[in-house]
Design a protein around this nucleic acid. Structure first.
Lengths: 201, 201
DNA sequence: CTTTATTGATTGAACGTTCAATAAAAAAAT
DNA sequence: ATTTTTTTATTGAACGTTCAATCAATAAAG
């Protein structure tokens, strides 16, 4: 089997196997042997291509987050308007993109999120992603309301999106992405109604 | 030291130490030795009082969830009205009760939530708690809107509450429970405005 | 013949649990 | 009031298991 140019193939194979293993038994019991078995290779190969288990986990999280960012960016590129409502809607849709909310990805995402509380490297990746979402939302809200109110709306909508993800990852049936999108967009509509309830105290 | 009646004291001591350890290094590295050291006792005592590490973790989660339920129940008992808005408001306030959102408790809660994806016993506890919150919200919404719409509102508000918890557990400063309450109550106000956007498709 | 890819047995560290030993308190006996 | 016995609480070393990482050996491709 040994051919040249295996590196990108094996890396992708192992990242996919990592998500499958975490989906199956959770991060705590996703051992290198189990991951390697999922990929049909030996355990030693993980250290060879990722320097160790931590390297593989970090690469997996990085892939999930970058795919998430790309899903959002793609939807926004397709927009023809500059309306804040449409842009925020695209951000919502991107966050509930089909490829992001399937069982393995969602469960791995939640596992990493919990793990990032105590692993600095994962926390860094998570923070970058979080800041991007918040900044995007904030910028769009800012166009139709005062600064402080925009910030509050951005935090609220981001929390709802995360909450829907969280619940989707836990329920056995997985996330109903259509309903999640509907709920988030309805919340957006209500936030854009000028009612000024959320003006800062 | 050996006195009679140590059981309830040690159990409480060890549960508190468990949260402290998880807050400090995360669930993955909260070993029995570290937990025991936090409580100032030896490692063997954990198996003696809880049958093993799993028993201690389960007891810890059970305590967090029952305290959460009691915080909600207490707020509702204090109500003088039967207005749905007030009752749901009390549910929100109870969920962001001071004693629930302090660092150690919130981090432990999130760690268990993630862990419950693959530990049936923890999943059972989490499901009971989740069902209670959902049923309570649903019942109150039901009094002012049609059934399907009430269910949708209950899911949405529950997701926002969870999302605020999730973000609170991650941010270094911990959860700003006042702002969380404000956001959730504002969302409630908007949901109770009859706009019918959320009628089922 | 050299390079690249891969294996799998081995190693050492870390973990949860067990259990014989110990010590203090409570109860019983003197 | 003492002393002895029983009960309860606790320790910490030992044990077996599991894991990630290593590395010499192997095999195919260039």
């Amino acid at each position: 089997m040994p051919k040249v140019g295996m590196q990108p193939i094996r890396r992708q194979q192992l990242i996919k196997a990592t998500m499958a293993a975490i989906d199956e038994v959770g991060l705590a019991e996703a051992t290198v042997m189990r991951i390697a078995r999922h990929a049909g290779v030996s355990a030693g190969i993980i250290s060879h291509y990722f320097g160790g288990k931590d390297g593989l986990l970090e690469a997996t999280m990085r892939q999930i987050l970058s795919a998430l960012g790309e899903a959002v960016a793609a939807r926004r590129r397709e927009l023809t308007t500059t309306s804040p409502r449409d842009h925020i809607g695209a951000i919502i849709d991107g966050n509930f993109d089909r490829s992001q909310v399937t069982g393995p990805v969602a469960k791995t995402w939640l596992a990493f999120w919990a793990s990032s509380m105590h692993k600095p490297e994962l926390a860094r990746l998570q923070l970058v992603n979080d800041r991007r979402l918040y900044a995007n939302l904030c910028y769009q809200f800012r166009r139709v309301m005062p600064r402080d109110e925009a910030r509050t709306c951005a935090r609220a909508l981001a929390a709802l999106i995360d909450g829907l993800w969280l619940r989707g990852a836990l329920t056995l049936e997985g996330l109903d992405s259509d309903e999640a999108r509907r709920l988030a967009r309805d919340y957006l509509d209500r936030l854009l109604d000028t009612r000024d309830t959320l003006s800062p105290s």
